[in-house]
Each structure stands twice: as structure tokens, then as C-alpha cells.
Simulated assay, not measured.
Amino acid sequence: MKFGIVVFPGSNCDRDMQDALQNDLNKEVIMLWHKDEDLSMFTTDDYIVLPGGFSFGDYLRCGAIARFSPMMQSVIAFANKGGKVLGVCNGFQVLCESGLLPGTLLPNGNQQFVCKNVYIKNDSLPKALKIPIAHGDGRYYADDKVLNELEANNQIIFRYTDEFGNLDLSANPNGAIRNIAGICNKERTVFGMMPHPERATTPNLGNLDGVEVFRLFGMN
């Protein structure tokens, strides 16, 4: 399994993601510049990763300009053929802007940039995971029709919880509707999440919970 990490002007978590995948998970990583288009070295067994940061300075809307990069046209085609794609933080925003995932990411409810550890839970995991966040526009929003479809199809992969895995509004760091921290498409090949699992994959940082996130995506 290979991993391609797309680098946009303003990406600032691309090397964090490379280090986590390459050095902590021992994966083959290829860095992809946003102006390039070639994904011929990847198969649908591989992953394309859109990292966090502030692509194109977050002008217009977060991810709105990155969505039109030449590489993103290839990523969209790759995903439409069944290829696996993961977007983290700004990458999640790009996925929503590109239409690969439904909904949008709005400014945080408190109108402030939030940077701290939070807890997130997936129904298949026995415990909540402690994963860092760092974003100013992480409040997931969609209309009731979309939200109900996400619920019905089990597409909500992570919700913000307390440390014991309980849904609690006080544990929601940005006001995301229904405490949503991450979602996937119906085919379960495109994944987006606001928290940063790549910042929790080494004992040097005192946290290995991010490894569980990557394992959930079949990336271990």
C-alpha cells in the first residue's frame, strides 16, 4: 500500500503526515505537488491524503481554491474510480468543497481558533481516542436530509465525546452539528475528519491513539 500526500501552497501538516506514515507506520510515501496531475503510480488499494494547513491562505472559503488545483482533478477522478482518499482538517474542507463528501465546514462556534486535545469516538472502537485539533473553521454543518442520510448509512465515523466516550455538548470544541468530527462517503472509500491523527502516532509525543485512527481506515 502506497500513500500520496498532496501539497498545496499553505499546507503545513504535510510533513507531519509524511513522518507519521513513513516513520511511525513504515509506509511508502510519495509527495504530490498540487500543480502536477499524474496519479498513475497509484492503484485503488493505495491512499491519497489531503493534509491540514491553510491551502491558498484559506481565501474565499477554506479549501475553495485548492479544490481547483490540477492534482485535485486527478484526485476526484481517482476517488470516483474507487480509490481511497483521506482528508484531515483542511483536507476535510477540500473534500467537502470538491463534492467528494457532503456538507461544509463553518467557522467555529466561538469564532476563535482552537488548538488542544479532544476525544473522539467511533462505534466500532471500545474507547474514546485522544486526538489533537487545530482549526478555526471546523464546525461541520449539513441540512437535516444529509444528516439523516449520514446517520442511516453509518457514514459518521467520528463524534466528539468526553474522555469516557459519552456524547456531551461540552466536549464539542467547535459547535459541529450532532458532534460530528469525521464522515465518509457511502462507499467508505473517502474519509474526512477535523482532528489530526498524524500528531498522535509516536511515544515521543506521549500519544499513540492516532495509530488506531489509521488502523480504522485500513492504513495500518
Rank of each mutant, 00 (worst) to 15 (best):
Q155S: 11
K121C: 09
D162Y: 08
N26F: 13
G63P: 03
G91I: 01
S11K: 01
S124R: 15
P51L: 02
E97G: 06
T43Y: 08
N185H: 11
C62H: 08
E151P: 08
L32F: 01
H34C: 01
G136A: 10
L95R: 02
G63K: 02
P197L: 07
L167T: 14
P107I: 10
A20S: 14
L205I: 10
L106K: 15
D19I: 14
N207I: 09
F54K: 01
K130A: 12
M31F: 02
V85M: 00
L50H: 05
P102Y: 13
C13K: 09
L147K: 11
K145E: 15
I156Q: 08
D14E: 14
D36K: 04
H34F: 00
I48S: 00
G206P: 03
G138M: 07
C115G: 12
R188E: 13
L25I: 08
N172H: 03
L167W: 11
D58E: 02
T201L: 08
G87Y: 02
N12G: 08
N153M: 13
P203H: 12
Y47K: 09
D144R: 13
F42H: 03
P173S: 05
F164H: 15
K186V: 12
M1D: 14
F113W: 08
I183P: 07
Q18H: 13
E151T: 15
G206R: 03
N12R: 07
N185V: 11
G136Q: 07
F164Q: 15
C115I: 10
